[in-house]
């Protein structure tokens, strides 16, 4: 079982999943693991964060311990995963 890590979600995602907190703790060794764990708790959330290629969505950025990460990026035990939306649009 992977170690627990902390995930911080973008505020714009939260209204799509009623009851979802901004910060969660869940077991994950990679970013893909973390997204799968989010999907298990909030069905449909994986589709919002990664596309079908599969890849992190183009206007979503994931940081692991402060470094930009992809789906296969490892998450060191105790690291924080910060997911944010691009500052774009009009």
């Amino acid at each position: 079982m992977p170690a627990d890590i902390a995930v911080i979600l973008p505020p714009a995602l939260l209204p799509l999943f009623p009851g979802c907190p901004r910060r969660l703790t869940l077991p994950a060794a990679t970013v893909a693991d973390a997204i799968n764990a989010l999907e298990a708790r909030f069905p449909g959330m994986a589709d919002r964060l990664r596309d079908s290629r599969p890849a992190i969505r183009r206007h979503i950025t994931v940081f692991v311990a402060g470094e930009r990460a992809g789906l296969q990026s490892p998450i060191p035990p105790g690291a924080e995963v910060f997911i944010c939306t691009a500052v774009s649009g009009g």
Partner: peptide
């Protein structure tokens, strides 16, 4: 909302 199954196969343009 839902998009369950609303996707093409892996590798295709999403």
């Amino acid at each position: 909302h839902s998009s369950a199954g609303l996707a093409y196969a892996e590798g295709e343009t999403p």
